[in-house]
Write a protein that binds this DNA or RNA. Structure first.
Lengths: 221, 221
DNA sequence: CCCACAGATATTGTTGGACAATAAAGGGTC
DNA sequence: GACCCTTTATTGTCCAACAATATCTGTGGG
C-alpha cells in the first residue's frame, strides 16, 4: 500500500494534490467538532488516521494556521484555538467589513443571489430545518452567497478564511438560534433590505444581524 | 555545514522557525522585484540560494500562495502573479472594505496613530523623500498604522496579506506618484479628515484616495 | 518546411527515515 | 512539597529516493 493514490473516481472535479485533500479533510474534522478547544493535533496520530506523511500533514496544518483554524505553538505543535470574547467581537468586526462591502455591490447591481433565497427556503421548510446541522449549513450558504455575489475573488478568499473561524465559533458555542422560524424570519428581513436597493437600509439590517449574533455568542456562558 | 542553524545572536527578538524566516526572505525578494511577473520559482535553485531543504521552501511558498504573493500551478510549481486590470479594482475594493473599517474605529476613538504622522513627516522632508523606495515605505507605513490603530488582530492579519499584493502591484507598475509633495499633501488631507471625527468625511476622503491610486495604476500602460 | 510522435530529460509532489533541539514526565534528594 | 537531574516524547528540519507529470529533443513523414 505504498504510493498508491486513489483518484476520486467520479466525484471530484479537481484531482487535487495530497496537501489540498488533507487540508480539506482536516478542515472538515475541525469544523465538525472532532477536536476540543485547546487540543493539540499530534502529527504521528494524524498521519496514521489520514495515512499521509508527516510532511504533508505539517504543510496542511500550516495552511490552516493562515486561515485561523489552527494555531502553531513553537515546539509544541498545532493547537485548536480557544475563542474568547475579544475574538468574537473581532471576528464580527472583520465580517462586517467584508460582508458590508458585498452588500454594497449587491445593492448597486440589484441582483439578489438565488443561492441565498434557496438557503432561506431551507430554513422555512420544517422538514429540512429539523436537523440542527442543516440550519448551520443554510446560514453558511446564505452568507456565502452574499459574498459570492460581490464578484470579487479577494473578498471571497478573505471571507472563506473568516468563515472557518465563524463556524468553529458556532461549534464551540452552540445553540445560537432559538428556533428555525426566527432564523428564517431574520434572513427574510435581510433579503427585503437588499431588495430596497438602498445601501443605508441594507447595511443597517445586516449590521443588526451581525451584532445580534455577536451578543448571542457573548451571552453564552 | 550540516544542521548548523545559527541563531540570530543579538538581533532577533524571536528565534523564528526556518519556514518563517524563509517566508520572510522570499517575501522581501518578491517585493523588491527580484523576480519578473510570470516567472517560476524553481525549487532547486531557491534551495541553493537560501540553503534550505526543498520541504521548507515548498511550505514557505505555500504560505505565500495563501497571501496572494505567489500562485501554484499544478505540476508546474510556484509562479509570480501577473496582475491585470481586474485585479487592480478587486484589490482596491477589498482594501476599501478593510481600511474603511479601521477608519471607522479611529474616528470613533479619536486617536490619530503617531506612526501615521511620522510617515507623513518623511514625505514632507525633502532629504528623506528623495529616495523613491523611501516614499513607498512611507506610504506603506502610513496605511499600516491606520490598520494597526483599529486594534483588531484579524483586520491586521487580513490587511498584511493584502498589503503584499498592493506592494507587488506598485512594484510591477512603477511611478504611481508624480512627486513627493503631492503625496505628502494628499496624506495630510487624510489626517485632517480623521481629525474631523466625522465618519462620512473621513470615509469619503479615504475612498477618493484609493480610487485615485486605482485610476493611476489602471492608466499606466 | 513543419507537423507529429517517440524517447530522453527535467521538475514537481510525495514519501520514508534520520537527527538535533526543545518540552514534558519521572525520580530521587533535601 | 520544592528543587535538580535523567529519561522520554514530540517537534522541526534535513537528506535521499521515487512516481507522475511536464518539457525538451530528434527523427521521419506529409
Amino acid at each position: 500500500m505504498t504510493h498508491v493514490q486513489e483518484l476520486p473516481s467520479g466525484s471530484g472535479p479537481i484531482p487535487a494534490s495530497a496537501v489540498e485533500i488533507l487540508t480539506q479533510d482536516l478542515r472538515r474534522r475541525i469544523l465538525s467538532g472532532d477536536f476540543r478547544p485547546g487540543e493539540f493535533l499530534r502529527d504521528v496520530k494524524m498521519c496514521e488516521e489520514h495515512s499521509t506523511s508527516r510532511h504533508t500533514f505539517r504543510t496542511a496544518a500550516l495552511v490552516l494556521v493562515t486561515q485561523g483554524l489552527l494555531r502553531q505553538i513553537p515546539n509544541r505543535g498545532f493547537m485548536l484555538p480557544e475563542f474568547g470574547p475579544d475574538d468574537i467581537v473581532d471576528i464580527t468586526r472583520l465580517r462586517g467589513a467584508i460582508e458590508g462591502e458585498a452588500v454594497r455591490m449587491i445593492v448597486l447591481t440589484g441582483v439578489i443571489p438565488p443561492a441565498a433565497l434557496d438557503a432561506v427556503a431551507v430554513m422555512r421548510d420544517p422538514a429540512r430545518s429539523a436537523d440542527r446541522s442543516a440550519l448551520v449549513t443554510a446560514d453558511r450558504d446564505f452568507h456565502r452567497a452574499i459574498i459570492a455575489a460581490s464578484g470579487s475573488a479577494r473578498l471571497k478568499r478573505t471571507y472563506s478564511g473568516l468563515e472557518g473561524e465563524i463556524e468553529l465559533l458556532l461549534i464551540q458555542r452552540q445553540g445560537f438560534y432559538a428556533a428555525a422560524e426566527d432564523m428564517a424570519l431574520e434572513h427574510e428581513r435581510l433579503i427585503d433590505s437588499l431588495k430596497s436597493r438602498h445601501y443605508g437600509t441594507a447595511r443597517d439590517a445586516f449590521q443588526e444581524h451581525w451584532e445580534d449574533l455577536q451578543t448571542r455568542l457573548l451571552d453564552q456562558r
